[in-house]
Amino acid sequence: MIALDTNFFLIAVPAVIFAGISKAGFGSGAAFASASILALVLPPGQALGIMLPLLMLVDVFSLKPYWGKWAKPEARALILGGLPGVALGIALWRVANDDMLRFLIGAVSLAFVAWQLAKARGLIRIRKGAGSSWIGYLAGTVAGFTSFVSHAGGPPAAVYLLSRGLEKTTYQATTVLVFWVINVAKFVPYAFLGIFTVETLMIDLYLIPAALVGTWLGVYAHRFVSESVFFAITYVLLSLTGSKLIWDALT
């Protein structure tokens, strides 16, 4: 049983709002921080089960302001690659235990921070306009896999989309569409694998207002808030939570 006490909501509500802001305003790249944060206080499967319906709700409410503004070839490549990635995630889930999932979520969190810092320091350069369709399919497969096991599909998708030199709103709209489709594809396997329970779905009802507030803030922040400020906060959160999850998995 999940204890629905003050401590739980003090962690869960900000985590869900943060996910909404990231998905609706900043390309989904950091939305998975919410699952990493929840996994600190819950078994990873429960954390992922709670977050998926809320992420899907954010997807639905994010579609309208960005409707039709996405890049069709890039979205198609990521989606077609993402579906086999979801299948790979299903295969891993069948053999994974909680500590393996904690380690994986923690490792993805730290890898995301390391990649962003390396890019900021010029150690990694993404050439604008590069990236053929097969690279999009590959990025989509990785995104589908990491999305299934940790809701962390944003970073691999970002690598491909940034290489395409998309305008800010086109980039954002493309991620909204891609992860709406991938999250829908994850829903049925999550149900069959027992990741959803009556308890996690009831908790979602309590957290719906936080998801809607985060979505509204994200659409607003997309126009007015500096990405550098938002992601600086994200890096700190992911570094702390990722390190803690890896430590818990190993000890």
Rank of each mutant, 00 (worst) to 15 (best):
K23C: 11
K23Y: 12
K23H: 14
K23L: 11
A24C: 10
A24W: 09
A24S: 15
G25V: 03
G27Y: 11
G27D: 04
G27P: 02
S28P: 03
S28I: 11
S28C: 09
G29F: 10
G29R: 07
G29D: 03
G29S: 13
A30Y: 09
A30D: 09
A30F: 08
A30Q: 03
A30E: 01
A30S: 15
A31T: 14
A31Q: 15
A31D: 06
A31L: 11
A31K: 05
F32C: 00
F32Y: 14
A33H: 00
A33K: 01
S34D: 10
S34I: 09
S34W: 07
A35Y: 00
A35G: 15
A35R: 02
S36F: 00
S36I: 02
S36A: 15
S36C: 14
S36G: 15
I37H: 03
I37G: 01
L38Y: 10
L38T: 09
L38K: 05
L38D: 12
L38G: 06
A39P: 08
A39N: 09
L40E: 13
L40F: 09
V41S: 05
L42M: 08
L42W: 02
P43K: 11
P44M: 10
P44F: 10
P44V: 08
P44D: 13
P44W: 13
G45S: 14
Q46M: 12
Q46W: 00
Q46K: 14
Q46I: 12
A47M: 12
A47D: 07
L48A: 05
L48H: 05
L48K: 07
I50E: 08
I50H: 04
M51W: 03
M51F: 12
M51E: 10
P53R: 09
P53G: 06
P53K: 06
L54C: 05
L55C: 03
L55Q: 07
L55Y: 04
M56H: 02
M56K: 00
V58H: 04
V58P: 04
V58D: 02
V58Y: 05
D59Y: 04
D59Q: 04
D59V: 02
V60K: 01
F61N: 02
F61Y: 14
S62T: 11
S62A: 15
L63D: 00
K64I: 14
K64R: 15
K64T: 12
P65N: 09
P65V: 10
P65M: 07
P65T: 11
Y66R: 05
Y66K: 09
W67Q: 04
G68L: 11
G68Y: 03
G68D: 12
G68E: 11
K69A: 15
K69F: 01
W70D: 07
W70Q: 13
W70S: 13
W70P: 00
A71S: 14
A71R: 06
A71C: 10
K72R: 15
K72P: 05
K72A: 14
P73I: 00
P73M: 07
E74V: 02
E74P: 06
E74F: 04
A75T: 09
A75W: 01
A75Q: 01
R76D: 11
R76A: 14
R76W: 13
R76Y: 12
A77M: 15
A77R: 09
A77P: 04
L78C: 08
L78A: 08
L78K: 08
I79R: 02
I79K: 02
I79M: 13
I79E: 05
L80P: 00
G81V: 13
G81Y: 11
G81M: 06
G82Q: 06
G82I: 13
